[in-house]
Design a protein around this nucleic acid. Sequence first.
DNA 1: CGCTAGATTGATAACTGTCAAGGGCGGTGG
DNA 2: CCACCGCCCTTGACAGTTATCAATCTAGCG
Lengths: 265, 265
Amino acid sequence: MRDMHGTRSTTSGPFTRKLQGFEPLQEADTALVTAIEAGERHFPGGTDLIREGDRPDGMIVITGGFACRYKLRETGARQITAYLLPGDVCDLDTSTLGRMDHTIGTLSSCRVVRLTSEASERLRERPDIARALRTAALVSDATLREWLVNLGRRMAVERLAHLFCELLMRIRAVVPTQGDSFDLPITQADLADTTGMTSVHVNRSLGELRRTGLIELKGKHLTIRDLPRLIEVAEFRPDYLHLGAHALTPELWSRSASAMVSRCA
Amino acid sequence: MRDMHGTRSTTSGPFTRKLQGFEPLQEADTALVTAIEAGERHFPGGTDLIREGDRPDGMIVITGGFACRYKLRETGARQITAYLLPGDVCDLDTSTLGRMDHTIGTLSSCRVVRLTSEASERLRERPDIARALRTAALVSDATLREWLVNLGRRMAVERLAHLFCELLMRIRAVVPTQGDSFDLPITQADLADTTGMTSVHVNRSLGELRRTGLIELKGKHLTIRDLPRLIEVAEFRPDYLHLGAHALTPELWSRSASAMVSRCA
DNA sequence: CGCTAGATTGATAACTGTCAAGGGCGGTGG
DNA sequence: CCACCGCCCTTGACAGTTATCAATCTAGCG
């Protein structure tokens, strides 16, 4: 799992990378987690993996694509309450809670690992992995609170700016990216259901972010043209994500990634 | 802790009651929890118990009054992300996370128990208590998601209606109340910071709820005049709170409470 | 090449915020 | 006991933000 220079190999999957970002893992643990990632299955976008009211158990790991948690109103209005990005894991704690209070579904086509409660139990027997999973859960709580601030106390443009900052940081932490850009395989309607607005208003707000030179978004790829200013607009403080230095300093990533590429070429 | 009729005694505190609502407790556990409640201290309203950036540990239990979690924007805008009502407990998980990402403060004057990490560790050694605490944590997660839906996908009046429904249910679960009413010792500005609106607009929306005969609110006491219709307006589904039958059927409460009173008189 | 989901735009209405002024009520000091 | 003060609630007029409705445009795809 480490190359001849002792650098962390970019061949490890997002789940491995995510956990390592929270807690250094032994070789054995890394092997176990990587083995788990191999069990991924594919689902098209718009698939519900688990529905509100279900009584599933174990856990779900996203290894590719964008998924989300969401709730529907009786009116049909949808509110997305969390993004599940590559490397993200979510417990299906229905052993204690009974039934799901929300649905988990894919936004884009996704690669997903489904673990039985036995398998997730086995994972948690490893102290370091268990600690990493606990941290992941606390971070997703903190993220939820941050989202509440986003919806309650920020304007449309600021909400999108904040979301984009968060996504950039989270994706950088698990996938090598080029500069301040990443694939955003979701629709404007999805963004609307995330930020509590209308797709029309999302469209106009995106237009404003474009016009002011903050972002560029086309063909499901988002490029942040002026990250410092976007962070300023969003009032973004990444602390709540508990990212390691590698995610916060993109240079490290890019450099090691390009080094990888040149080594492989 | 049980009277001669085998009914749960109303003399147990809110924390005891809260945990019992999630998990039946042995006498020994009940005694332990009740003993802990005795260690309460008083704080005036508007006191920050723990500030963003602090590195506290252990946990906090609210035994009286209204407290909350909140975050501030640099503009000074405040977003309340959770209410901490009597019986509510919150972990100060900074053992894993480092520092608080939000502040915990009182809204009204409060009675609070502060537990060291050792004390909370000792609590968690009791399997039933540990399970109850886990459930409580999951419920507060679910509540956070519900709040996100509230801010993202409901109109002002609906937001307040939903909040009032939730508060009624939660308070009923830990304190004997008379009919569909309870003390709401907070200001309209607090409601605004909860629901993502302005205090002015909260005021007008409350007016509408009053005019349509749904509620009555004066002198920090809220009376719900037409609960079925309020639930309808809010589209309130109490499932996420995981309340026992005693909370959902107020009759039980009132009857046992009045029985208590007459016995004591 | 036609189809369809998604993106874009305009006109208008609805909702919510902002600013400013008054009113009520409880607490405190004289 | 009363006057005064401060905090909160209430209200009005107006501005700003966001939703709604409807049409058009675009790009990916069979």
